[in-house]
Every structure is written in structure tokens, then in C-alpha cells.
Design a protein around this nucleic acid. Structure first.
Length: 740
RNA sequence: GCGCGGUUAGCUCAGUGGUAGAGCGACUUUUUGACGUAAAGUAGGCCGGGGGUUCAAUCCCCUCACCGCGCACCA
């Protein structure tokens, strides 16, 4: 009996030592497991990439939840003898990281332009490195058995090669094009962003109605109205049958008389306002579409700093917010203001990362064409669009999404998907591998020979590199050899791709999950993963999403671990938490599971005290009630193994908890006391409690790895393996229980 | 506007076509030997409202209400 068992379980004194044992064993690396005979060389694989945390700071409870669920899957797979890889990495998170560093510099009174591209990037890299180290340390404290030897970064050299390779192939296939389109310009971040990076905020905005010649037009944005020389109405609107398409009308406007042209278009909602509107094609997506359809002029009104251009006459150079009221005032003086609705509410598009108000602009940018049909990969005979490549595997069940209702959300998104804008006017990120010289354009992995070539200044959307993550981390493109015209995978890519499961938050379904499916389908002709498991968002007890802005209200995972232990936090995050549903993390629950860890500890003490003289550890001749208990335990193991294969961690953790405490401890141990005291069926009793502990520790290990590993080290047994590589107590394939 | 999820014990949440479950909390008892971070026990629920299918509905279908979320539009 070890001394330390005599005191209550102390996670603080245990966890760091245990993690070091695991790490030193090398078993996080599947190759080591094979070398040491833990895993068979030809074993089935189980692989998962870690959703790479952004290098913008610390890990929060959301990360903790992710690490816990993934570590549970990985530990079980490893115990089941699978060749198990959990691949770690971090995300450079382009805009997020750059704007974070910009803010830090701001405090020093420095603007990034003062430093210049190179010096600024050095600062960002320094910051990213520090964040990376913090993140890795925290992940280790959380007990994650990630294979650190394979760690990757979305912006390292290998990943840069994969990004350039992917870009070039898409460019050559005509899937990436450069064009003038209306895009989401963020005046604050001074970059374009994709549709998915927009966050809408409801705000009260004055809704003005102006007299526009014979019409009345409504707007929330008078400052864009300078260029409005087209007035649009529905062709079937009976109120305006007197006006013909193309008809010119002279009218008085902000800066004097103008000539407006009547346009008829069915997109107009006759019910809205007066059924007449003027359009600003340069700054409104829907107006842009109308202008394209009718081949109308487009004129820029607002520059990229959010200031009015000379077209605004006396208002030129003014900022939007300042100009708006003044323009209204002028129109009012001219008798053109009809009414103002003070209580109008509409949605404002803001940039996710900077909070800047999006000003749509027509700009020259790079796009991924999602509708063009190409005969790439395995679809040589039947050309397919990227949209189809994204839809098919989910529709056909090659990718299963848990919970399955997210499949509908996924389909809905793809069906409404527009071309993906991938260029960003920021410095931190993968530089676009395109060079220009006069009118020539050159796209390749390296710069073209000869003088005069200038590389595109822009970088790529961070999700472009994230989309490659399941295979760029496994060595692609180097790990694809082309023999006899057939691409053939080698190395890690061959062994571990498609990955078994992707576990992530449902907020990443479009940003990341869809893009990974796109990239893998297109570049490898296969799915990136077979199952997607979405966890919910972690919330505070009052229901708010946990984030740093909450300050003290947010629970810091590391301080919880310090207080209650890792195992307790893990259980609190798993029990009662079903996929897709948000989790309200409650300190009471965590405290409860800390008690459970202690309960396990005390049970172990009792069992070990009573089997010290006990040499024969094989299945004995049980008496009837013990035999029944053994069978009940076996049935439970079979049951939870099946539940685990269906990713029902909530149920499994609860069942083991219940059985351990209220059957093993409360019934079986109490019964054994009596038998041992009365010296009746002692062998049966001792065998039963030993085997229960032996089996339950293994079943509990993925959920509560630290306390179970610590107790395991004290158990009398033939081999001295770490529990993390012991056998899971039920073999699904063979229907066998692993006795010892 | 289109769509998705939720509504179960005081709180946080599981769950199932056939007498309703857990944790925490509350209350009562127990200083017995693994554990007081414990044990034994008790109380507490028309499973959101209404309708339907069924021998049987908390569960399946329809509908309403409220809460949360996503997408689109917003001149």
C-alpha cells in the first residue's frame, strides 16, 4: 500500500507528474506505439486534426471543451489498439492577429505604416510565437495527448508550399480569377473581407423620404445619393405606368438639377415604401446587380477611408457620419425632405474582427468561382462545380454530421453561396503567388525570371490555408507522387487521410468545415473526414457566451484545474453535454466531480488493502450474486463501447459514474466487506472487487485520465504498462471483454 | 421573410412509444473500519398550451406560445 493513498486524492500534486510520464513515454506518437508493440503495424487508423487555435492569446473554456472531447476520443481509440494520431497546430488567423498587434502598437503610439511591411511582420511574428508557446503550454496542462512531434502552423514553410500549390492549381483550372466586383470593404481594417466574416448588428437608423422629381424615395443613407441618376420601379406597378423604361426625367437634386433615367426591374418590392428607389451601384450589392443587368453607369461616391469624393461637391472630403446630417439639412432647405422616421431599425454590416462598418465597394479582387464546372480529381468524366463537390459527400452520407440537423444548415448555406473573395489587403498571411509586369500576369510557386515583375501586394484569406488543414498537416503536396499519371498518396497522408473525425464548434461550419470539404474534394478527390462532431458553445451560468470580454465572469480553465483538478473539469464538460447544444459551465458541477475523483481514490484504497494477500487474480468461482455482478459489469462495458462509437459521451460518462459510485462502491464493496469479515466466499468477493476496479479504471480513463492513471500505477499486475495504452475493456470487433 | 434548435424536479441538464432520471441544492438520520469530499433515507414533476395518430404519447404528426440561433432582405 502506497503512503499517498492514505490521504485524500490531490490532483495538484499528481497531474503534472502524470502528464510528464505520458509525454516521456512517446505514446502520443503512433509510430512509437507501433515500435514498442503497443499498436499493431497494420492496425486500423484513427486520426483527427486539432482545430488550430488562433495565435491571438490564451486558451479559453471553449478550447478546453474542444480539447476534452477530442482527448476522450483519442484516448479510447488508442486503448482500442488503433493507430491513433491527434495532430496539433496553431492558426496564424491573419486579420485577427494583425489587428491585435495593431492595437498593441497603437498603445505605444506606433502605426503599422511607420514600421513598414517587413518590420511590422517581425512584430507580428514575435507576438504569434509568444501566443503559440502559451497555447501549447496550456494544452499540455489540460492533459491533451497530442502528437507534438507533428505540430504544424498554418503559416509555416510547409503549409506555405501547400497554399501556393493549391492556389496555382485552382488558378490553372480557372477556379481562381481576378475581377472587379462589389466586395465588403472594411474601412477600419483597410481590407476586404468575405461574406462570412460579416457580423450584422441591429441599429436604429433614421429613415428619410425625399422628393425626387415626381417620385418619393426612401433611404437610410443620404450621403450615397449623389450618384443616383437612375430611378427604379417594378414593371407591374400600376402607380407608375405613366413612366416608361429609359425615360429621362429632369429634376432638382442635392447639388442642383440632374437628369434621371427610369429603369424597370422586377426585383423591386412594390410593398416597400413608395415602390420607387434610386440606386447606388458602387456601394450597394443589390444596386450593383441591377446596374449589371441594365448595363448602367457605376460611380464611386465614398473612398476607402469612408470619406466623400469630389462627386459630392461641397461635401467632398467629409466623413460619412458628418456629411449625413448636413446633406439632409440642405435637402430640407430646398424643400425636398418629405419625412423622417426616427424609429427605423435595420441591420448594419460590421467586420467580425475590427468592428468597422462595412462599406461595399467595387474593387479588383481575387475570387474562387464556386459555380464553374471543372473535371478535376476523380471527376474526369463528369465535370462538377465546387458547390457540387461540397454538397455531394454530405448528401451521399460519406460525411456524417453530428448532430444531423446541421446538415440542413450546411445545405442551405451552399445553395446560397456566392464566389468566395480570398484576397486581403493586410500584411500578415500567405502572399498571393501572382506577379505582374505591365499587362502580363504570372502565377507560380516562385517568382518569374527576369526584371520588372512585381508580386501582388495582397495576402490570402486565412481560411484558404485552414481549408487545407487535414492534409497540409500530413505532408501534402509532397506526399502525393504521380506514377503513370495516377496520383498516389504516400507516408502520413496515405495512412491517416481521410481523417476519422473532425471535432469543432458549430460556429465554424461555414468558415472552416465547408472549406475543408471543398479543398479536399477538389485537390485529393476524397473527403477530409468521415464524421463531423459539433460541440456547443460554452456559456456562463447566466447564459452568455464565454469570452475574454466578460472578464471575471468568464471561467478560466486553468484556474479551475488548479482548484478542482483536470479530471473534475473534464467530467463537468462532458456529463450532460450533448453535441450542438450549448454548455453552461457550473462550478458546483465541477466541485461534484472533484468529489467523484476522491471517491475513486478511496475505492482504490479499499480494494488494494483487501487484495494485498491475494495472488490469484483470474476469474474465480464466483458465488451467484458475484457472478451476476460480473455479468452486469460486462454488459455495461459492451453497452458503453457501442455508445462511444456513436459519440454519445454524455451518456457514457454518466453511466460509468453511476455504476462506479452507486453499484460498485455502494453495493458491491459493501457486500464484500461482509463476506471478508465473515470469511464467507472471500475469494469470490476479492476477485470481484479487483476485477471491477481493473475494468472500471480502464473505462474511465478517457474521461478522467489523471486519477485513473495514478491508481493504475499502484495496482498489482503482470506488465507495468501505462494505463493510457492498456486495452479498452471491450473489443467491439471480436465481442470480447478484456479481462486483464 | 425562410430555416434550425429549445421548453422535463428549486437550479443545470440527460432520456425513452409502455410506473419519469442524474448532478447540485433542500430536509431527516448515522461519529460502523475505503471514503464526512461519506453513508442510509425523504420531499419535490398534469415532461410549455391545444389538437391528432396509437391499445398506450414526455417521446411520432399538426398547431400555438415563449426563449435562443442561423440565413436572407431592408431602397
Amino acid at each position: 500500500m502506497r503512503e499517498k493513498l492514505l490521504k485524500p486524492y490531490n490532483p495538484q500534486k499528481t497531474e503534472e507528474r502524470i502528464y510528464k510520464l505520458w509525454e516521456d513515454s512517446g505514446f502520443f506518437n503512433p509510430d512509437v506505439c507501433v515500435e514498442k508493440g503497443i499498436t499493431k503495424a497494420n492496425a486500423e487508423h484513427f486520426s483527427m486534426v486539432l482545430p488550430p487555435p488562433n495565435v491571438t492569446g490564451n486558451l479559453h473554456t471553449g478550447h478546453a471543451l474542444m480539447l476534452v472531447i477530442e482527448d476522450i476520443m483519442i484516448r479510447q481509440a488508442r486503448m482500442q489498439g488503433k493507430k491513433t494520431l491527434w495532430l496539433p497546430g496553431t492558426d496564424h488567423a491573419a486579420i485577427a492577429t494583425q489587428s491585435k498587434v495593431e492595437k498593441l502598437l497603437e498603445k505605444e503610439g506606433i502605426h503599422k505604416n511607420d514600421l513598414g511591411r517587413e518590420k511590422f511582420l517581425k512584430r507580428v511574428e514575435k507576438f504569434a510565437k509568444e501566443s503559440h508557446d502559451t497555447i501549447v503550454n496550456q494544452a499540455k496542462k489540460m492533459g491533451a495527448t497530442l502528437d507534438w512531434s507533428r505540430e504544424a502552423f498554418t503559416l509555416d514553410e510547409t503549409r506555405n508550399l501547400s497554399v501556393k500549390t493549391a492556389f496555382k492549381k485552382m488558378y490553372d483550372d480557372g477556379l481562381i480569377y481576378r475581377g472587379h466586383k462589389i466586395v465588403n470593404w472594411d474601412p477600419k481594417g483597410q481590407t476586404v473581407i468575405s461574406d462570412d466574416e460579416i457580423v450584422y448588428e441591429e441599429r436604429k437608423n433614421k429613415f428619410y423620404t425625399f422628393k425626387y422629381g415626381p417620385f418619393e424615395i426612401g433611404t437610410t443613407r443620404p450621403e450615397t445619393k449623389f450618384g443616383d441618376k437612375y430611378v427604379v420601379m417594378h414593371p407591374k406597378d400600376k402607380r407608375y405606368t405613366d413612366y416608361a423604361s429609359g425615360q429621362k426625367i429632369k429634376l432638382e437634386w442635392i447639388n442642383g438639377p440632374i437628369e434621371a433615367t427610369v429603369i424597370k426591374d422586377e426585383i423591386i418590392d412594390m410593398e416597400f415604401g413608395t415602390g420607387v428607389m434610386t440606386i447606388t451601384p458602387w456601394h450597394t450589392p443589390i444596386d450593383f446587380d441591377i446596374a449589371e443587368r441594365h448595363k448602367l453607369d457605376k460611380e464611386q461616391i465614398i473612398d476607402k477611408y469612408g470619406k466623400l469624393l469630389p462627386v459630392a461637391g461641397e461635401f467632398a472630403g467629409m466623413k460619412i457620419a458628418d456629411a449625413r446630417e448636413k446633406i439632409v439639412e440642405k435637402l430640407k432647405t430646398k424643400g425636398l425632405l418629405i419625412s423622417v422616421d426616427e424609429n427605423y431599425v435595420n441591420r448594419i454590416a460590421t467586420a467580425e474582427r475590427t468592428g468597422g462598418i462595412i462599406e461595399p465597394q467595387i474593387m479588383l479582387q481575387w475570387f474562387v468561382d464556386v459555380n464553374k464546372k471543372i473535371s478535376a480529381g476523380k471527376n474526369k468524366l463528369q465535370p462538377k462545380s465546387l458547390k457540387e463537390l461540397m454538397l455531394e459527400p454530405v448528401r451521399e452520407g460519406k460525411i456524417k454530421i453530428i448532430p444531423n440537423y446541421f446538415e440542413k444548415v450546411y445545405f442551405n448555406w451552399i445553395e446560397n453561396l456566392r464566389d468566395w473573395c480570398i484576397s486581403r489587403q493586410i500584411w500578415y498571411g500567405h502572399r498571393i503567388p501572382v506577379w505582374y509586369k505591365n499587362n502580363e500576369i504570372y502565377c507560380d510557386l516562385t517568382a518569374p525570371e527576369g526584371p520588372g515583375w512585381v508580386q501582388d501586394e495582397d495576402t490570402l484569406d486565412t481560411w484558404f490555408s485552414s481549408g487545407l488543414w487535414t492534409f497540409s498537416t500530413l505532408g501534402w503536396p509532397a506526399s502525393v507522387k504521380t506514377t503513370a499519371g495516377q496520383p498516389e498518396k504516400t507516408g502520413d497522408l496515405k495512412t491517416y487521410h481521410p481523417t476519422t473525425v473532425l471535432e469543432t464548434g458549430h460556429d465554424l461550419i461555414f468558415f472552416w468545415v465547408a472549406r475543408m470539404i471543398l479543398m479536399s474534394q477538389y485537390l485529393l478527390g476524397e473527403v477530409p473526414f468521415k464524421t463531423v462532431y459539433f460541440h456547443g458553445m460554452v456559456r456562463t451560468t447566466d447564459g452568455r457566451k464565454m469570452s475574454k470580454s466578460l472578464g471575471k465572469k468568464a471561467i478560466d480553465p486553468l484556474s479551475i484545474i488548479k482548484k478542482y483538478g483536470n479530471d473534475a473539469l473534464r467530467m463537468a464538460m462532458v456529463v450532460g453535454n450533448t453535441p450542438g447544444n450549448d454548455l453552461k459551465l457550473n462550478e458546483n458541477d465541477i466541485r461534484g466531480y472533484a468529489k467523484f475523483a476522491n471517491k475513486i481514490w478511496n475505492v482504490a484504497r479499499f480494494v488494494l488493502e483487501n487484495i494485498e494477500d491475494f495472488k490469484v487474480l483470474k476469474i474465480a468461482d464466483y458465488d451467484n450474486e458475484d457472478k451476476k455482478s460480473e455479468e452486469e459489469l460486462n454488459a455495461l462495458m459492451e453497452d458503453i463501447t457501442k455508445e462511444m462509437s456513436e459519440y454519445r459521451f454524455s451518456i457514457v460518462s454518466e453511466k460509468i459514474y453511476q455504476y462506479f459510485w452507486h453499484t460498485f462502491a455502494d453495493v458491491i464493496i459493501e457486500r464484500s466487506k461482509k463476506k471478508i469479515l465473515e470469511k464467507k466466499n472471500v475469494i469470490s468477493a476479492k476477485t470481484l472487487i479487483y476485477r471491477h476496479l481493473h475494468i472500471l479504471l480502464r473505462a474511465l480513463h478517457p474521461f478522467m485520465p489523471f486519477v485513473t492513471e495514478e491508481i493504475w500505477s499502484m495496482l498489482p499486475k503482470e506488465k507495468n504498462n501505462l494505463l493510457m495504452v492498456e486495452k479498452w475493456p471491450f473489443d467491439c470487433a471480436q465481442g470480447k471483454h478484456h479481462a486483464n
